[in-house]
Amino acid sequence: MTLLAVERIKLFTTRSPWWCALIALVITIGFSALVVGNSGDEFPATVASTQFGYSFGMAVIMVLAALSVTTEYRFGTIRTTFQAVPHRASALLAKTTVVALLALVIGEISAFGSWAIGTVLKPNADLALDSGADWINVAGVGVVYALAAVIAVAVGILLRHSAGAIALLLIYMLAVESLVRLIPSIGDDIYEWMPFNVANKFLTGSGGANAGRDAAAGAPLSTSPLDQGWALVYFAGVAAVLLIIAISTAKRRDA
């Protein structure tokens, strides 16, 4: 618990987490207001459309998570941390836990805030959370944010450079997965198993009335062949593997 408290203090005494949290909330809820506010008969407002901007907020959360570790490497304070806690894995796991919990909270606030603004803008639309799929579509955002933060922390530990880690994360998330589909013959097959495509499957399901969304009223549906439960397990597994590799690497090299 002491390590968690120390990491919490280190995280919240810097400005970047506060700014990133604010930006994530503004972007996510702002996109919801824009999409739902412009919905109509052709593209009706749905629970899914209130969550249209979640991926943009997730990108900001990953920046926050990467900075939480790369900033320590940049200013050399990670050496002090490792001197105080010789078992590096414990220190890094504590940092990851604190960042993931913060990402979870921001994700839930942004998701339910987006849903709430949608109900205010379109009070007559069918935005009730009356199915399990609807609840996953909203409440699941925080879980995805938390796992994405773990991935970002792992990348930060591996690269140790803020600009490099942020560039890699954003380029991969916003461009690489989509560009994979352009590979002739096998592109679509590879894309089915890309981590963020699979994470989207957990949130959106298979589409249609029984999955809480209309394919035309939100972000593109995932092409993953996994069901929602296994999609979450897969995304969590990717995050865990990356973190294990990152911590193992940090234990072997100089700080």
Rank of each mutant, 00 (worst) to 15 (best):
A255S: 14
K95I: 04
S55A: 14
G76V: 07
G53K: 06
E108M: 14
E108N: 13
A24T: 14
V69Y: 01
I245D: 07
A231R: 01
Y172D: 10
V63L: 10
W18I: 06
V153F: 11
L64P: 01
E192K: 15
C20I: 01
L101R: 06
L169R: 02
S206L: 13
T14P: 00
I9W: 09
I27C: 05
I186D: 12
A45M: 06
I9A: 14
G218Q: 12
Y54D: 06
E192N: 10
Q51M: 12
V69H: 04
G156K: 00
V153M: 06
L179Q: 13
T50R: 05
D254P: 02
V120A: 14
S55E: 15
F82M: 02
G207K: 09
L168W: 06
W230C: 00
L34N: 01
P86Y: 14
T97A: 15
A100Q: 04
E108I: 15
Y191T: 09
I106A: 07
N200Q: 15
L127E: 03
V141R: 06
L4I: 15
D41Q: 13
V233Y: 07
P220Q: 08
A149V: 02
A5S: 13
A103F: 13
N38C: 01
E108A: 10
G30C: 05
W193N: 01
L174Y: 05
L147R: 01
G218D: 15
T81M: 00
Y234Q: 05
S185F: 15
I244W: 13
S224N: 11
G57E: 11
V69S: 02
R88P: 00
G132N: 11
G76W: 01
L3T: 09
E7S: 07
V141I: 12
A154L: 01
S49W: 04
G113T: 14
L121A: 08
T71L: 04
P17I: 07
